Simulated assay, not measured.
Amino acid sequence: MNFIIVTGMSGAGKSSAIKFFEDMGYYCVDNLPPTLIGNFATLITQQQESLNKVVLGIDIRGGILFEDLFSSLHELKAEGHTYEIVFLDCGDTELVKRYKETRRLHPLARNERIEEGIQKEREILKEIKSKAHHIIDTSYMLPKDTKEVLYKMYSEQKAFHSLMITIVSFGFKYGMPIDADLVFDVRFTPNPYYIPEMRPYTGNDDIIKDYVLQFEVTQLFLNKLKDMISFLVPNYMQEGKNQLVIAIGCTGGKHRSVTIANALYKYLQDEGHSVIIQHRDIDKDSKRGK
């Protein structure tokens, strides 16, 4: 029997992930004390209708019981079962924002600041993150984006043996994405922000797309970028990498970076890759240069 262990940072979306697995037909148990994993595996294998799609949600809510996780997983493997660990991660800034928006307390910061609880949790989860088979950073993802990633990984009961590519457009004035593997600066391309009638639009609109892509320098860069990514992806896969974050940045993340990110996204989709796209800063301040 194969188990999927869903764990990660509190607030990173574990509950949503488990609900998605339920919708996919998996039998899910959330917050199972790790010390009971072996007993649970024995119980379900004795059922007349043996389950073959099981998800276990494990996190630090189990307190000191979380320390039993690795010995329980070793026991699981010794009994002939297999497992994969899916670790949901998220940046500190976004986690704090989510806790403040929901007005929830961090489980490790009952009488402390949220930031202190997050750092304690990172230290506790450091080892399991290093042993995770898949790490999904949800910092800039909506719940539907996380579901799309999981669907591509586990739909049709097939293990995920590909590379999940995330393309993020962003504005340098808001800071670079901290989880980016590759960062490309497209501020050298002509800027539609300085044409007043184009300023209110974004790279998702044809007027901006047509303007940015009409220039030879943009096309030359885009072709070289496609060639580079096409070279890198199979080599990353061979090395065992399962997630690649490509960040495309301009000044404000509204015009040029969005256009080029969309073009790269379409190219990778047409090539059959598993890819999602996020425009991080597209709705931010539109009064300054883009």
Rank of each mutant, 00 (worst) to 15 (best):
S50A: 15
P33A: 07
V217R: 14
I85H: 01
S162G: 12
A41Q: 06
I260H: 00
L88E: 07
T42D: 12
L150K: 01
F3G: 08
E127T: 10
G13T: 02
K152M: 12
M24F: 01
Y193C: 04
K77N: 05
F215S: 01
L65H: 09
D227Y: 15
D59Y: 07
S169D: 04
I118E: 03
S162M: 05
E239G: 11
F231P: 06
L95E: 00
L182W: 05
I282P: 02
M237L: 15
P33W: 09
F160S: 02
D205V: 10
E127Q: 14
I85T: 00
M228V: 11
I195A: 13
V6H: 06
M153F: 03
H161G: 11
G253H: 02
K126L: 08
K284L: 04
I277Y: 07
D23F: 02
V258F: 08
D270Q: 12
A12C: 00
V183Y: 05
S130Q: 09
K284Q: 05
E123Q: 14
Y201F: 12
N223M: 09
D68Y: 09
L105V: 14
G203K: 05
I246D: 03
K266L: 15
L51D: 15
D181Q: 11
V6N: 10
M9N: 01
V245P: 00
Q238L: 11
G289W: 13
L65C: 13
I277V: 13
S286A: 13
R61E: 09
K152N: 13
F221M: 12
V6S: 04
H161P: 09
M24H: 00
D227F: 15
I128R: 04
F184Y: 06
F184A: 04
G57V: 00
N111W: 00
M24K: 03
M198D: 12
V275D: 02
L73N: 01
E239P: 05
V149Q: 06
H255N: 07
P190D: 09
F231L: 13
Q47S: 11
F40D: 02
G8W: 13
G117S: 11
D145R: 01
E22I: 03
P143Q: 06
L36S: 00
G80V: 12
C28N: 02
Y154R: 08
E115N: 09
K224W: 14
A109R: 04
M228G: 09
A263M: 01
I208P: 07
Q219M: 10
P34W: 06
S230M: 13
H134I: 10
A12H: 00
N111R: 09
V245H: 10
Q243R: 12
G117K: 03
S286Q: 14
N242F: 14
Q48F: 10
D210Y: 11
I136L: 09
Y194R: 12
E112Q: 13
L264C: 02
T202F: 08
S130N: 14
T202N: 03
G62T: 15
Q219I: 10
D185K: 08
Y83I: 08
D137A: 11
G8T: 08
T93C: 09
Y265C: 05
S71W: 07
T166Q: 07
Q278W: 11
D92W: 08
G91D: 07
R110Q: 14
V96E: 05
H81L: 12
L69Y: 05
F66N: 03
L88V: 07
D137Q: 08
G25K: 08
F231N: 09
G252M: 14
N262M: 03
I37H: 02
P196I: 02
A78H: 11
G203M: 04
K77D: 10
Y174V: 04
D68L: 14
